[in-house]
Structures are given as structure tokens and as C-alpha cells.
Design a protein around this nucleic acid. Structure first.
Length: 190
DNA sequence: GCAAGGATATCG
DNA sequence: GATATCCTTGCA
């Protein structure tokens, strides 16, 4: 569960879709270039946020997952909004990238994509370095909203990594709660 | 189907 | 410095 507690109130969302990026040999990972100014937190301790910008407009939230010097992270691709729906909606409108229909978007679509997760939670690349495991952090990851069994989870190839060589392009390292209405992409892909 | 949008890694 | 590329999204 992703939690943000600040002046705007408390926002929580159940993490329903993630992707794994593991090691310098993963040709789809930012770590494929070795340590750089952008990805350096991937080489630090786990539990830290790595937020980067793609396509000039969207910031994507990742969590560092391995001990120092082993670059790995999990991309948070979608949330099921639980609390703070209106704060998320307001943040989406303030972010301004999406079209005019946000005011009428159903709640379950407010964070149904990696760029939408950060927009709904008011995160950007300058939040890189936040300790997501520290209860004192404004943004943090708490225990699961509820338990998930293995047979609910669908594994598939990662999204948007067609540039990577095989086998990395096809490894099923995207994990989603099968059929969840808050998963990313068109409904036919959920 | 495709444009928007700017940071980033790489090359000269 | 210049340039090709990118872990996306919403609308035509």
C-alpha cells in the first residue's frame, strides 16, 4: 500500500501492478549504463524512492529493492485508490497533463498507470531519495492493504521496453492483479 | 494512429 | 554542444 500524509490529508492506494528491473545485465533497466547521475540511488540501500522523468512529462516511481551496489528496483505501475480520492483528483488536475475529463473520471482510474500514480500522489523526480520505509516520511509504503494469493497474480512481459534485446524484452517481470479495474492500459489488456 | 515534451546518455 | 531516444498518455 502506498501512503501519503500531508497538509492535503491522507492518500492511500493499493499497489495492483508492478514491474521488476534487476541488475546491470537487465537491458531494459536504467542500470544497463552503469552508475550515472540519474540512477545512482539504484546503487544505494533498498527502500529508497527512485523517481525519473520519461517522455518529457511523466515522472515514474520506483523502489530500490536490493542492497548497495546491486542495482535493482520495482516500478509502481498502478494503484487502486483507497483513501483521499478527492486529493488525488485535485493533484491530477493540478498536474494538468491529462485532458479535461479528470473531474468525471471514475475513482478506480485515477492512478491506473505509472505516470498517473505520481500525478495522483503529487510526486516528481525531486522525491528521489525519499526513504519509503521510514514511518516518518511523507510518502511511504505500508503493509499490504489486504493479502494477495499467487493465483490472483498475472505475470507478463514488461511494458514499453521494446528497445531492449531478448530475452529482456520478453521476460515476464510485470506483475498485476489479474483483471483489476485499476491496472494500466486499455481494458482489453487487463 | 500519433503528437506532446524535456531530460538523458552518447557521440563528436 | 548536438542529437536520438525514452520503464507514457489521451485524443484523432
Amino acid at each position: 500500500m502506498l501512503v501519503r500524509a500531508d497538509d492535503a490529508g491522507r492518500r492511500t492506494g493499493r499497489i495492483v501492478e508492478v514491474e521488476a528491473y534487476i541488475g546491470a545485465t537487465d537491458r531494459a533497466s536504467h542500470a544497463r549504463f552503469g552508475p550515472t547521475a540519474r540512477n545512482r540511488v539504484m546503487y544505494g540501500p533498498p527502500g529508497i524512492a527512485y523517481v525519473y522523468r520519461v517522455y518529457g512529462m511523466y515522472d515514474l516511481l520506483n523502489v530500490v529493492t536490493e542492497p548497495a551496489d546491486r542495482p535493482a528496483a520495482v516500478l509502481i505501475r498502478a494503484l487502486e485508490p483507497l483513501d483521499g480520492i478527492e486529493a488525488m483528483r485535485a493533484a491530477r488536475i493540478a498536474h494538468g497533463r491529462a485532458g479535461a475529463g479528470i473531474g468525471r473520471l471514475p475513482a478506480h482510474r485515477l492512478a491506473s498507470g505509472p505516470g498517473l500514480v505520481t500525478a495522483a500522489f503529487g510526486l516528481d523526480r525531486f522525491d528521489t531519495g525519499t526513504d519509503l520505509c521510514d514511518p516518518a516520511s511523507t510518502v511511504r509504503i505500508a503493509g499490504p492493504a489486504r493479502s494477495v494469493t499467487d493465483d490472483e497474480i498475472l505475470a507478463s512481459p514488461r511494458i514499453g521496453v521494446d528497445y531492449a534485446a531478448e530475452p529482456w524484452r520478453s521476460i515476464p517481470w510485470r506483475f498485476v492483479i489479474a483483471g483489476h479495474p485499476s491496472a494500466s492500459g486499455p481494458s482489453r489488456l487487463r
